[in-house]
Amino acid sequence: MKKRFKLLLPATILLLSAALSACEPAVNPAKPLRLAYPNKIQYLPMMLSYAESGRKAVNQVSAFSPVIGSGGIDAAEALLAGEAEVGAMGDVPALILLSRSDRFQVICAFMQSPTMHRLVGSSARGVRSLNDLAGKRLALQLGSSTHGALLGFFAERGLQVNGILLISMSPNNFTEAMLSGAVDAVAASEPWPQNLLDRVPGAMPLATLTISGNHFPHVLIAERRLLDSRRPELRRLLQQLAASMVYIAQQPQAAAVSAARFTGRTAAAEAQACKELIFALDFSPAVSSALHQTAVFLREQKKINQLPGAESLRPIKDLQP
């Protein structure tokens, strides 16, 4: 089953969470787990696990039914709406979700990369360096991992975000917005930065949004009640993702070809983007430590009102394949 979701902004999550807390959807153990994730290269293990070629390669039947969105914040929306039992998302969408609902739990990290977020400017709009951003319109997906990376990158370097007009939009609209002159710069993770550089005349890289010591862990989030009611299915899902990660390491070109069928990009572009990413199921304390550090920063920036509970950030080690 595939379903596409509209963008859920952080402010909207709170309202939806409150509405749903009184009527949680019932778990139906007869159905496969529904896993929400975007068709982006950062989620290659999910795409490969569901792809027919990938399933044959790892000799498994798919352990889940996909729920597809355009970004990690869509996966958070799917979880809150009861349209998925498990979601894959970046650190910031996960922390927004966990800070506003105690229904969910980090299972583990599945991908990390310190260099995955980039800032692209339009020279045609007078943006050739970071110093040119003052007073300009910068598009990004608010509440995303890239949003957190942008704030952290600027804060670490003593730069000001206040003078920049941040415009939230779906990543699917980034290229058209820059082509039309509706925005002057874009902050995003692959495939969007490279799409802009390839398709928009005058687009140029401004910065890689790195933060000292932060590898931007992407995590699997599940409803807490699944830890008891559907533990075998969760374990099987993780086993399949682990097998897909081995396949990615051993057959990177074949994996990129499989990814391209889902993303619409060339296999060469996906193979290049994949070089920046580290795929591994990580159940170590470093995951909760990194998430807590980012959560503290988000609270300081008034992007979340309270820190998630320490227990909700702690990976479930006994599910480790």
Rank of each mutant, 00 (worst) to 15 (best):
A256M: 11
M169T: 10
G72I: 11
I164V: 14
C108A: 11
L298I: 03
Y50R: 12
R157A: 06
V27S: 06
G54C: 11
L291Y: 10
A267V: 06
L20K: 12
I316F: 03
L16P: 02
V86Q: 01
L197E: 13
D318V: 07
V246K: 15
R55E: 01
R128M: 11
F64T: 01
V200L: 13
A134Q: 14
D184S: 10
A19T: 03
P308Y: 04
Q105V: 05
A249D: 15
G87V: 01
S17H: 09
R225Y: 01
F104R: 01
R125H: 11
A84I: 05
P308Q: 07
E156Q: 15
A155Q: 14
Q141T: 15
L313S: 01
C274W: 04
S189P: 01
S212M: 12
A78V: 06
N172M: 02
S145P: 01
L151V: 05
I164H: 08
R261L: 10
F283P: 00
S289A: 13
F154G: 04
T175D: 03
G72V: 08
E276F: 06
A78N: 07
A290V: 01
H147G: 02
E83G: 05
A273F: 12
N195L: 14
D74L: 02
L319Y: 09
G181S: 10
A185Y: 04
P29C: 07
A11G: 14
R224P: 00
N39D: 08
D102G: 05
S53Q: 10
P252D: 12
M204G: 14
I316R: 10
S99W: 08
A256H: 02
A19F: 03
V61N: 15
R103F: 05
T210F: 13
P66N: 09
L14S: 10
D102L: 03
L8D: 00
N59E: 12
C108N: 13
A51L: 02
R137C: 05
L234C: 05
G202D: 15
P252S: 09
A76T: 08
P205S: 10
K302I: 01
V183I: 12
F5T: 05
L14T: 04
R225M: 11
P191H: 06
V58I: 15
S212V: 08
A18F: 09
L35V: 11
S289P: 00
A78C: 12
V200K: 15
N305S: 09
I73G: 07
L220T: 00
A94D: 00
T12F: 06
S101V: 02
R100G: 15
V186W: 08
V120H: 15
G90C: 06
A290D: 09
